[in-house]
Simulated scan of single mutants.
Amino acid sequence: MTKVAILMSTYNGEDYLQQQIDSIRVQNFTDWELFIRDDGSKDRTVAIIKENVHRDSRINYVNDVAQNLGPKKSFFKLLKNIEADYYFFCDQDDVWVKNKLTTMLNFMENQEKTFREPLLVYCGLRCVDGNLEVINNDFENIIGKLAKPYDRFIGNDMPGVVMLFNRKVREIFLKTNDYDEIEMHDWWIALIAAMFGKVIFIDEKLVLYRQHGRNTVGAGTNGGILKKFFKSGTLKKQDKLINVSFRQSRAFFEQYKKSLNREQRQFLRELMSCESSSIAQRYRFFKKYDLQGTSSLRTLVYKWLFIIRLTKILKTDYS
């Protein structure tokens, strides 16, 4: 029997948690299990979880004594310990469109008829405010924009809530033995699927992605991309993105180099050599692989900061 696991990590989520759980319970597809690990909440989050466990046998509370791991390690702990055929990540404050599970699982199963390797599919989302009113946020337009596997080393176009991946992706994830240089759980899983299998975008907006003041990870401020790049502190954020993406790429290479093919190893070796190479060599690297971000402007900013400032960026502490 096929097992579908929905993995949720919570932290002080009492305001919106029940609405998210309700949107899962009314899905058209009903044969799922929800596993919720709380990351040390101080509000009524745990009480809400327990109320739902008593209400619905498909909901499981993962009572973990390890507190406040942060979202990355909390989700990884769930993924490491829950065995299933298919996995969804779930945030505590969004709302799922009623046919999200059905649409994504049907698409996945159709793909698996001809492709039996690690597979990840992801859908679009709609940005909304705390009251689920649609808001103008260009974040939703970057979903599905990364076309080539190597592009995923410089950016991520999928938050965890839009992802569905199969058991074979998890099997490769289980070989990960060091989480410290990984930026986020969803980005790492996307890299695994892109390097060892296939990533496919479903162009349907199946999640209401709630933006509010207490998001652990959000879509950022409203408004156009160009406007954001001229805001105070934006270039520092781009420097940080280069820093964390480079360190994450190095961690990926170190942990998986024996499993990568020759071409993939060559790409990552050349990427790692950029740390000590000249500006001209870094320019040639970017030109050779034609790395693209989620928009032409994001690509341009990343590219030139990477080429001109990489050595300085990697010496800076952004914690």
Rank of each mutant, 00 (worst) to 15 (best):
S249A: 09
Q292R: 07
A194I: 04
L300N: 13
N222Q: 12
I142F: 14
N52K: 09
K287I: 15
S259Q: 13
G293R: 04
E263V: 15
V244Y: 15
K240A: 11
K80Q: 05
A47E: 15
N110I: 05
V65K: 07
D64P: 01
G155M: 12
L297W: 00
H212L: 11
D31M: 05
L119M: 08
L271E: 04
L241Q: 04
F29Y: 15
L271W: 06
A193S: 09
A84C: 09
N156F: 12
D43V: 03
N12Q: 13
Y318P: 01
G13F: 07
S249L: 06
I59S: 03
K42S: 14
T2M: 14
V161P: 06
M104L: 05
L297Y: 03
M272L: 15
V46K: 05
N110T: 10
V26K: 08
Q67F: 09
N99S: 04
D186K: 02
A84M: 07
T234P: 06
Q19C: 03
Y61D: 10
I82D: 03
W304A: 00
I308D: 08
E183L: 15
K228E: 12
M163T: 13
S295P: 04
F35R: 00
T221D: 10
N68F: 14
Y61P: 03
R25Y: 13
I21F: 09
Y122C: 00
C127R: 04
S23N: 03
M108V: 04
K3Q: 00
E204Y: 04
V62W: 10
T221V: 14
K288M: 03
Y86G: 01
Y302W: 06
G124L: 02
G70Q: 02
M108D: 01
N243A: 11
W304L: 00
Y302F: 11
E140F: 08
I21L: 09
D39N: 15
E33M: 14
I189D: 00
Y179M: 10
D180P: 02
D15N: 15
W304Y: 04
K80V: 02
N60F: 11
I154E: 03
Y289M: 01
L208N: 02
K258I: 06
I279Q: 10
S277F: 06
Y318L: 10
L305W: 09
F306V: 06
V207E: 07
N215W: 01
